[in-house]
Design a protein around this nucleic acid. Structure first.
Lengths: 185, 185
DNA sequence: GCGCTATGAATGAAGG
DNA sequence: CCTTCATTCATAGCGC
């Protein structure tokens, strides 16, 4: 596993993040928390100035650079966008001998944890007559009055929870004769 | 985002060959076989459409989602490259190394005046150690004539939509109270 | 069981 | 904004 290890980076604790790792930025939970809050507040594409400020503030929690903030918003926005869709295709199983009984997922809110997929974009949902949603529901003001940043000390809160449970439907276990054909492509 | 992902799923009923459970996708040997074959055929970055088809076909062998196919190719490609590089570096590297200069984030944060959106250009100055390994050693001859899968049935799939849509999520319920302070913006 | 490895999944970082 | 690469995190499997 260490084969891909960077030769110049100290592998610090993954959970902590306080250890100033080199290589790529590893946000602390606090940083993520703030960034997420900002995002939820409506901030989507922070200006250069905002990025600077955010970065400065977040530096309190650990090593961070402006570009990290910039990238974070870019990625978060992009992945959130093409992701918040419903479910995974749900492939309309055409399994002859398979009842879809266990398959009672309301294709409304199926469980699933696939968040932010690089470019999985179109794999999601089939029909979506999304009412138009614009990008500007957040003009310039990002509600600066949100109460963020504990001015002192650290806040501890247990992280690492398993929020989403993925109730899976039964599995298909049947081995069709192993005959391969790739002609479908 | 929620980092505590990975749905916690019982891995009930395993042992029975194809006892796929929940949690993360556990490809069957047949699925892996097909995927590997596709890869060997030259497929490296399947398009959305291809992923869809592959996924559909593979669903016959067991539970699978498009994203699984997507990830599979991403990982497979990346890891092969990774190994390739490792070997290449240690062996091919004539001792005339160029002083492994670490990532010197000598970024100077040239936050210039950006009217609208912030461009990364202002945050990133250096840090270009790209190598972009030879990625072309395998063209694109996916040899569709491989004998795999009964070429029967469905082939055409409805086009879902175009990637250009900017479907923004519309279900962002109003931010719950969270004591943090964003006043620095 | 514990530690290691292989690999699915997630996300930081770029390039276009 | 979109696509892709690189790294990293989290587990399933396996050997001991």
């Amino acid at each position: 596993m260490d084969e891909g290890m960077s030769a110049f980076c100290i592998k610090a604790s993954a959970a902590d993040g306080t250890g100033t790792k080199c290589g790529r930025w590893n946000p602390t939970t606090e940083q993520v928390k703030v960034l997420t809050e900002l995002f939820r507040s409506g901030l989507r594409t922070p200006s250069t100035d905002q990025i600077q400020k955010i970065s400065t503030q977040l530096s309190f929690y650990g090593k961070i650079e402006s570009k990290n903030v910039f990238y974070w918003f870019q990625n978060h926005k992009a992945r959130e966008r093409q992701k918040r869709r419903k479910v995974s295709i749900s492939v309309h199983d055409d399994h002859r001998n398979h009842n879809h009984d266990l398959h009672h997922h309301q294709h409304k809110d199926v469980i699933r944890r696939m968040d932010k997929i690089s470019s999985l974009k179109h794999f999601v949902e089939v029909n979506h007559h999304h009412q138009q949603v614009y990008d500007h529901y957040q003009p310039e003001r990002v509600m600066k009055t949100l109460q963020l940043f504990p001015l002192n000390s650290f806040e501890e809160y247990s992280e690492l929870e398993k929020p989403m449970i993925r109730s899976m439907h039964a599995n298909h276990d049947h081995h069709p004769p192993l005959d391969l054909r790739l002609s479908f492509l």
